[in-house]
Structure formats: structure tokens, C-alpha cells
């Protein structure tokens, strides 16, 4: 499926998906989300293709993405619905491929499947 490329790159991985926005500041160095009320609480984004609508909350979330990259626990790629400033700037510095997809396509991407994100061409490959 086609998508809009925001930060270029190509990556493969198993999808970790949530319909709920994420406060990226709550990702620890291991990539684990610490947010008691969030469905991904206790799960790790490390080396996955993270699929989520957009980031909320702390502006410092951008640094957390960079932190994950340095600690080798960054997501391989990110697919989101809306390009928020936190995710875009964090991915830009951390070199995490980032694409934005439509709501219909977002619904088609299932948690746990393996996909490839080609952010050079603007394609998601199943």
C-alpha cells in the first residue's frame, strides 16, 4: 500500500500496533512503555515496526526516540496517522524511517504481522 514518506529509509519488522496515542517520554531505555492506563504498558517497541496514531504529551518524547536509537532499542520503523512534531523531529534525528498512512490502511495493518516499510518509495509491503 502507498503511504507518505516523512523520514526516508527502509526497514522490516513485526508490527506492534495500538489505536491509542502514546506519550513517548514514557519509553524507557529498553524501549518499554511505562504508562499504567495504556494498552501497550510493559511492551517494548524495540526492533518492531511501531504503528500508532500520533504522539501526545511531553515535548521531550523526541529525545526518547533518539535515546532508543543510541541504545539499539529503537523501533525499526514507525507508521502513524498524523505527523506530529514530536515523532517527526525525533525520527529525523534518530534516523528512524517514518511514514504516514490513511485511516483505511491503518486499519488493515494488524498487530504481530511482518511488514516492510519503504520510506524511500512511500510504500508499505506485506
Amino acid at each position: 500500500m502507498n503511504c507518505k514518506s516523512i523520514i526516508k529509509g527502509f526497514a522490516k519488522g513485526i508490527v506492534l500496533k495500538t489505536e491509542r496515542p502514546i506519550n513517548l517520554l514514557m519509553l524507557n531505555d529498553n524501549g518499554i512503555l511505562n504508562d499504567a492506563a495504556h494498552i501497550l504498558n510493559g511492551k517494548s517497541v524495540a526492533n518492531r515496526v511501531l504503528v500508532f496514531p500520533y504522539a501526545v504529551g511531553s515535548s521531550v518524547g523526541a529525545y526518547r526516540l533518539y535515546n532508543l536509537r543510541v541504545n539499539k532499542n529503537a523501533p525499526n520503523a514507525i507508521i502513524c496517522l498524523k505527523p506530529d512534531l514530536i515523532t517527526v523531529s525525533g525520527c529525523a534525528i534518530a534516523n528512524i524511517p517514518l511514514v504516514v498512512c490513511s485511516l483505511e490502511d491503518f486499519k488493515m495493518i494488524k498487530d504481530g504481522i511482518e511488514i516492510s516499510v519503504d520510506a524511500d518509495k512511500g510504500e508499505i509491503l506485506f
Binding site: I6, D29, S58, S59, V60, Y63, V70, P83, L85
Partner: peptide, 29 residues
């Protein structure tokens, strides 16, 4: 990157920046 992602045509001048990412516990090593 932000401009392209959010459909900006250009950069404009701003007069004041307020920066976050100061607490070591937030930005880490």
C-alpha cells in the same frame, strides 16, 4: 522534516523559543 510533514510552504520568523529537554532524567545519556 517537520515542514514537509505538515505541509508548510516556508519557514517564518519566530521571536521567542522556549526549550524543553533539560532534566537529565528525561533526555538521558
Amino acid at each position: 522534516a517537520i515542514g514537509e510533514a505538515t505541509g508548510a510552504q516556508r519557514l517564518i520568523k519566530v521571536e521567542w523559543a522556549h526549550i524543553s529537554g533539560v532534566n537529565y532524567n528525561t533526555i538521558g545519556d
